[in-house]
Nucleic acid binder design. Structure first.
Lengths: 264, 264
DNA sequence: TGCTGTAGGTTTGTCGACAATCCGATGATT
DNA sequence: AATCATCGGATTGTCGACAAACCTACAGCA
């Protein structure tokens, strides 16, 4: 009915080819900015002049603005009217909200993970243990950045383990927001030695197939995380976002201003 | 430190005024399209010519495209490269995913609701009962549309009851996606007489403060919902989205090039 | 001294136009 | 008869430009 491929064409199909992956400019820009945020190249509150960024990325303002709208919908940017865009600055309240939500979601992911066939579980466990090793290695090397990145990837793998498109999307976004929390609260990366142990325990629970224990540990881990984030006296950094958003009281819109990414 | 408002100015501040809420054009457009989707004016698969829509809304293509990117990030639109935009068509898989996710989230909302002070609970219960009455009224009048709208609003109120910004946003988006499921599966609205009873029961559980019973009933309700949506033989409607996405053979990679980027 | 009003410079929001690409159909070829 | 090639129409992606709005600073006035 709505299948355009003629029968003869399909019958000749021999091997299965993956479609060519062409990505739109908007996608490219959004990915670049997203990466820059995760890397800390665009810290929270950084003002983002459109002209400047567009020039650096080698695109015009049109596609750039489109990409920004997408990041705004993801909650990573704030865009007050006629006041420029900025990377969102997370508040203590955001830290609580994000981690509470992550707890709800990630414990559920564990349950879903355990419902999957053994074959798949095995592959996922392998990926998780890879990240775990990265964490431990980074810890030994006092590599705060590497530790943080492995942390993100560990949870990202977990996010994919639930085999729910939407949930994975959510987890990915929440993780970037988590990183923004770190940047918003600390001036620099910090090493937390407990991190690796907590994840090792979580991993172990999954490995043993103990769903409730996993949920418990994950919940505890995220609670710890909140404590670590908020323990530090709030960084005395210029909170541009706060000023920009003064216009919208409680629950504003995303979008705002970034600073310098790398050239095209 | 970073407060621009001078001390004297603040000291004179008497009453706290809510900031004027001016909304940007992009917001306006996005809201309009979102509403049109909920109302069924833009059914799933409907091709959205930029020029046409921009003309109808009285704006140029620039702001329109920006708004579309935001809706795309919310998962309501599909934007394949150079092939036009279209309202997303939900599949049976989506129905399962959405409702499973809703179950996880909304049962949690019940728990959060019960943790709130009695005063607030009361106000929320009142709002819920209002929607409940709307449902019953619509049912008696055989008003399928009214029934569906009250349904959405009931759950929307619930979404706000968890006092979590992010969760509320998620619920709102998931509800629109739910509506898209209805439109994708049925040709028209259908009346489901059980709906009011199920919600009455859910409401009652909340009213009595029985969190676990609420969770049970909500879970059951959403399961029923899936059954109702998938019971109907899939509507033989022109699936434009499918055609647009034909570029990706059968099931190569999980929606990537069609940009269902992460978000909300 | 402190607040109000005006001017300048800069950035955003919006629009119109151009070129590249894609869809569909028609006609050529084996 | 089926496949390939070409063409025309239509639409998208991108860009540059203009006007309005905003921020900063400075001067005027109680």
């Amino acid at each position: 009915m709505s299948d355009r491929r003629s029968g003869s064409l399909r019958s000749r199909q021999v091997g299965r080819l993956a479609p060519v992956r062409r990505t739109s400019t908007v996608d490219l820009i959004a990915d670049t900015i997203r990466t820059a945020i995760v890397d800390g190249a665009l810290p929270p509150g950084a003002p983002l002049g459109e002209a400047e960024i567009a020039y650096q990325l080698g695109v015009s303002r049109g596609p750039l603005r489109e990409a920004m709208q997408r990041l705004c919908a993801e909650g990573l940017l704030v865009i007050p009217r006629r006041r420029g865009m900025a990377v969102r600055t997370m508040t203590a309240e955001d830290v609580h909200d994000i981690h509470w939500l992550r707890a709800r979601i990630e414990t559920e992911l564990g349950r879903r993970f355990l419902d999957r066939p053994g074959e798949e579980r095995k592959a996922i466990l392998k990926d998780l243990s890879t990240e775990l090793k990265r964490m431990q290695k980074a810890l030994k090397a006092d590599d705060a950045r590497g530790l943080g990145d492995a942390y993100l990837d560990f949870h990202r793998v977990l996010g994919a383990a639930g085999s729910s498109t939407r949930m994975e999307r959510m987890v990915r976004t929440l993780l970037i927001e988590t990183r923004l929390c770190t940047f918003s609260m600390y001036e620099h990366f910090e090493i937390h030695r407990d991190l690796a142990e907590e994840h090792a325990a979580v991993f172990e629970a999954l490995h043993e197939g103990r769903g409730d224990r996993f949920a418990e540990l994950m919940e505890a881990h995220l609670r710890q995380e909140v404590g670590r984030l908020l323990a530090e006296p709030e960084a005395a950094r210029e909170d541009v976002t706060g000023r920009l958003l003064a216009e919208t009281p409680d629950e504003p819109q995303p979008l705002d201003r970034l600073d310098l990414p790398e050239g095209a």
